[in-house]
Amino acid sequence: MSTLPIITLDGVRILHPHNPKTSLLNDVSWQVEAGSFWVVAGLQGSGKSALLETIAGIRPQASGSVQLFGETIPVRSDDALALTEIRRRMGLLFKGNGRLFPSLSVLENLALPRCYHRNETLSEAASDLAPLIDYLELDGLLEQIPSHLGSSWSRRVALGRALAQQPELILLDNPLSGLDTTQLRWWRNFLRDASRGHPALGGHPLTLVITTDELTPLLPLGHQFALTHAGRWTVLGDRASVHTARSQEGVREILGEIH
């Protein structure tokens, strides 16, 4: 496995979106190496989504620097073209319904990045995406519009859209919240396939960063763990380190140990 850092954060401070005078996360310094599987855990509102959006260059950081694939993400997106090239190598799944485009069908949502970047027609993109569509079990839903889908299926379509360009890095924002057991099983299998490499997902192991507010389902899957709590960023380390740190403030809550 290569040790080249895919993501490098150095002293990053992220502000609250609705109250720019307060910090959501302070002094985040972090390196994510190629092929690793990171789980970022924290309670709701602790800044996990903001962190992923900052890495993707959507939400500018107040201070510090963010590097993706060795390229610095500009705080002001002056070099939009360079940012476009970086974004083609990563996929971001937004939390909830995944922010699908409501006026496009499921197939059009899935095909949009390929049609746009590779100038393919819808049928060409559909044919290229057939193995992925099959893997995501979306064959029967391609003509539907997003508002007709349940939230778990919307999320799966959004995952397909994030994977359509066969990215090297995938950022998943709380994908396991509110899923039934069948969906949860599918997602766990997907995460296992993605971290090991699967032909439908490009054939190579993906670098995964996943956020969660409930750590237990991801504990057996993740390689490395980090915590966002009360504006602080803490790298916990591997699975054994999470167990060691269970007395730490914030860790008990995300492990679901209320008492």
Partner: peptide
Amino acid sequence: EVEALEALGV
């Protein structure tokens, strides 16, 4: 949705 477009490099 605009951020979703940006995330896709569109």
